[in-house]
Design a protein around this nucleic acid. Structure first.
Lengths: 114, 114
DNA sequence: GTTTTATATAGTAATAATACTATATTTCAA
DNA sequence: TTGAAATATAGTATTATTACTATATAAAAC
């Protein structure tokens, strides 16, 4: 019986899992993509992506808690933006994956979930 | 009222969400890391990572359904391996993120969840 | 001061994910 | 043909997530 011995740190695992899990939601991916070209207000996200406002706030809160986004307040407006450039790298990494999938080099069952 | 108009395809969003969500679990990340240097049996994963056997099977099934792993059977043994080289790219992408986090360039609250 | 706008927060029902125990299935060996 | 080994599957309680409605808060406009 070999004892648990992974070369990777528990912190890495926890952080990675957290970030990946948070990004693993269709609407949140949409929001992140939308934020790619700069900060947006909750209302802009809500109207532009056609998502219910409290749901947008809820997703933004989840992403805020995971360090995916940050915000600044200006009067009654909240401008949300991506917390760092890395978020985009993750998604562009996924774009490459999508290319593989499109080419049929990667098959994954596609379960519908919003 | 602008209509929902994202440049990215719904398929991309669904696929990316699916993959990210599936990878967004500490134990599954461990398993993927462990599989990085080649196929392993369920028992090896179970013993080496000190995870309960049915849970390993369960995680493997989830990852199989998302196209993260594949397997070949040999007698009573099931050898699981990463479905493609891309999985690792995603994790190495996360390693870079971890570096940012370590350096304090990326702050994220750290909630404990196994 | 009252209304409106923008957004957050509370509360909650419905659904999904997780961890776990127990058991079934399959294959191989004695 | 019996037993053991390897793994899957069933069943389930617990917990987390999601989507949603209603409401609170706070700033700005009137």
């Amino acid at each position: 019986m070999v004892t648990n011995q992974s070369k990777i740190s528990p912190e890495f695992i926890q952080n990675a899992a957290r970030i990946l899990k948070t990004l693993g939601h269709p609407q949140r991916i949409k929001i992140v993509e939308y934020l790619e070209d700069g900060e947006k207000t909750v209302g802009q996200i809500h109207r532009n992506l056609d998502l219910i406002q409290p749901i947008v706030s809820q997703h933004l809160k989840v992403m805020l808690d995971s360090g995916i986004v940050s915000y600044r307040q200006e009067g009654t407006r909240y401008f949300y933006s991506l917390a760092n450039a890395f978020i985009i790298k993750i998604l562009s990494c996924m774009s490459d994956a999508q290319e593989m999938i499109s080419k049929g080099e990667w098959t994954l069952e596609h379960h519908e979930n919003n």
